[in-house]
Simulated assay, not measured.
Amino acid sequence: MSRQRSMETILASEFVSIGELVRLTESRYSTLKFYTEEGMLSFEQAEENLTRKFKRQTTVARILLIKELKSNGLSIPQIKETLEMDK
Rank of each mutant, 00 (worst) to 15 (best):
L21W: 07
L21M: 11
L21H: 04
L21C: 07
V22L: 03
V22R: 09
R23V: 13
R23M: 12
R23E: 14
R23N: 11
R23D: 13
L24P: 04
L24S: 08
T25M: 10
T25Y: 08
T25I: 10
T25C: 15
E26V: 09
E26F: 08
E26I: 10
S27T: 09
S27R: 14
S27C: 15
R28W: 02
R28P: 00
R28Y: 07
Y29W: 13
Y29M: 12
S30R: 14
T31S: 15
L32N: 00
L32Y: 05
L32K: 06
L32V: 04
K33A: 07
K33L: 14
F34P: 00
F34C: 03
F34S: 11
F34H: 11
Y35G: 01
Y35H: 13
T36L: 03
T36C: 06
T36A: 06
E37S: 14
E37N: 15
E37R: 13
E38C: 08
E38G: 00
E38R: 14
G39T: 04
G39C: 09
G39N: 10
G39E: 04
G39V: 04
G39P: 05
G39Q: 05
M40P: 06
M40W: 09
M40T: 07
M40N: 10
M40F: 02
L41K: 10
L41Y: 02
L41H: 07
L41W: 07
L41N: 03
S42G: 09
S42T: 15
S42A: 11
S42L: 12
S42H: 14
S42M: 11
F43K: 06
F43S: 11
E44H: 12
E44Q: 13
E44D: 09
Q45Y: 00
Q45W: 00
Q45T: 14
Q45E: 15
Q45G: 02
A46G: 05
E47M: 10
N49Q: 02
N49F: 05
N49I: 01
N49Y: 07
N49E: 03
N49P: 00
L50M: 12
L50V: 01
T51R: 15
T51G: 06
T51K: 14
T51V: 08
R52H: 08
R52M: 11
K53P: 01
K53N: 01
F54H: 07
F54E: 03
F54M: 07
K55E: 13
K55M: 07
K55Y: 11
R56C: 07
R56A: 05
R56Y: 07
Q57F: 02
Q57T: 13
T58Q: 14
T58W: 00
T58C: 04
T58I: 08
T59C: 11
T59I: 09
T59R: 06
T59L: 09
T59Y: 09
T59M: 07
V60D: 02
V60K: 02
A61R: 14
A61M: 03
A61N: 11
A61T: 06
R62A: 03
R62H: 04
R62E: 06
R62S: 05
R62Y: 04
R62D: 03
L64C: 00
L64H: 09
L64K: 11
L64R: 10
L64S: 02
I66P: 02
I66W: 03
K67R: 14
K67F: 04
E68R: 14
E68F: 12
E68P: 00
E68A: 15
E68N: 13
L69V: 03
L69N: 01
L69K: 12
L69H: 04
K70W: 02
